[in-house]
Simulated assay, not measured.
Amino acid sequence: MVGYEKDDINAHKKLIAGCTSGVVTRFITQPLDIIKLRTQLQKTNPRKAYKSQWLPTAMRIFREEGLFGFYAGHNLGQMHSILSVSSQFYVYEIATSYADHFHPSNTHQPYIRFLCGIFAGCCSTTLVLPIEVIRVRQMLVNEQYRGIFNGAVMVYRSGGVLAFYEGLSASLMQMGPAVGISFGTFSYLQPALLRFLHDRDCGADGDCAHSTSNKYKPEHILMASTMAGSAAGFLSKTATYPFDLAKRRLQIASHDHNRKYKIPTTARRLFKCRNLTQCILKTVKKEGVVGLYRGWAITIFKAQLTSVIAFTTYEMMCFLLREMDV
């Protein structure tokens, strides 16, 4: 299960599961990430801020850039996803193991796991932010920031070393609590759902045929992880969404379009900010409070899908690794 469990596979094997989860998650959710980003960064009329823009944005991307337009920056996205997802799971496993060692009581476990999740989110964010800044700009104008090395050079030219950490404050304020809520929700719901499914199928006597290396059936793990992952994605992203919006707008603060590159219409007239407070106030002034949730619908769908795939793939990989230990 996610988080430290006595007599479970070690954290290094769970790191393998985290890397696998990152690859699968990024490949499936990349198109949604492109649509979400372009929607969040476009300037709009305040009267239209409440309207869903994801479908028109998706249609324009397809018309102007083709199917591959939805995979702009995918290679760098894979690198980002592997580092981000695996580091989140790995740091969370290590943090919960230390927490269990120093505070083994179950009384405060939900709060401790929430704090461990915040710690994991902040560590992961700090690690991958430079890659994320390059990736975000690739998803805007892929030709201008093509490749990791060229992208890094272009980012550096636009704002020096500090340009790689644009949006750090918003990233920490968004990802820390988001990962804490996500892991805390999942760690609470998934075991409860597993026990329910196990008791329903196996009866009170617990007579249920399954591998000796795994406590639960794979179909139970799949169903419980999907349901818990969906809830975790919805709650974590909704609670922290304004910071996610601000983070994206801060990450392009020093970005300047170069006229020699073809600029998609969905990557023009971008909403930029220089600091977190200014970003929140400017958004409210220009688009109203509802502007803080611009792109919420597609983001929530993507967050739920990401959470379901990440947690489910992770849990199923852990299941396979336990089987291989037999």
Results as ranks from 00 to 15, higher is better:
163 A>R: 05
92 Y>I: 02
114 F>Q: 03
146 R>V: 07
166 E>S: 15
119 F>N: 09
111 Y>I: 14
120 A>Q: 10
97 S>Q: 13
181 I>D: 09
82 I>R: 14
165 Y>K: 02
185 T>C: 15
128 V>S: 07
187 S>L: 08
127 L>G: 09
138 Q>F: 02
86 S>H: 00
89 F>E: 05
91 V>L: 08
101 H>Y: 12
99 A>N: 07
156 Y>N: 05
176 G>C: 08
140 L>Q: 12
168 L>V: 13
92 Y>S: 01
123 C>I: 15
128 V>I: 14
106 N>R: 13
117 G>L: 12
104 P>T: 07
131 I>Q: 03
143 E>K: 08
170 A>V: 10
94 I>R: 10
185 T>I: 15
85 V>E: 06
94 I>L: 11
190 Q>R: 06
86 S>W: 01
164 F>N: 02
113 R>E: 06
121 G>T: 13
128 V>H: 05
160 G>I: 05
183 F>W: 14
189 L>T: 07
177 P>G: 03
82 I>V: 15
135 R>P: 00
178 A>K: 09
105 S>Q: 12
110 P>D: 04
113 R>F: 08
148 I>V: 05
173 M>K: 00
186 F>R: 09
85 V>N: 09
139 M>C: 12
83 L>Y: 10
167 G>K: 10
104 P>L: 05
177 P>K: 09
182 S>W: 01
97 S>P: 01
132 E>M: 14
124 S>N: 13
142 N>F: 06
126 T>E: 00
84 S>T: 03
136 V>D: 00
100 D>H: 14
158 S>I: 03
90 Y>F: 13
128 V>F: 05
182 S>A: 12
124 S>L: 12
188 Y>N: 02
107 T>M: 06
143 E>A: 11
150 N>Q: 04
91 V>F: 10
162 L>G: 13
111 Y>K: 12
86 S>N: 03
171 S>C: 09
123 C>N: 13
151 G>I: 02
185 T>S: 15
150 N>K: 04
148 I>H: 01
168 L>W: 14
179 V>I: 15
153 V>D: 04
112 I>W: 11
99 A>Q: 09
89 F>P: 07
190 Q>E: 14
87 S>F: 01
93 E>A: 00
107 T>R: 13
142 N>G: 04
98 Y>Q: 10
165 Y>R: 03
108 H>L: 04
135 R>V: 08
143 E>G: 07
137 R>L: 06
89 F>W: 04
125 T>W: 14
161 V>P: 03
162 L>S: 11
138 Q>Y: 03
133 V>R: 13
172 L>V: 15
136 V>N: 00
102 F>V: 08
163 A>L: 05
113 R>I: 00
188 Y>H: 07
157 R>L: 03
158 S>W: 05
117 G>P: 12
129 L>N: 08
137 R>W: 08
169 S>R: 03
113 R>Y: 12
141 V>A: 02
145 Y>Q: 03
178 A>L: 08
153 V>R: 09
172 L>W: 11
151 G>T: 01
176 G>T: 10
151 G>Y: 03
174 Q>V: 04
98 Y>E: 06
137 R>M: 06
158 S>M: 12
185 T>V: 15
131 I>S: 10
100 D>K: 11
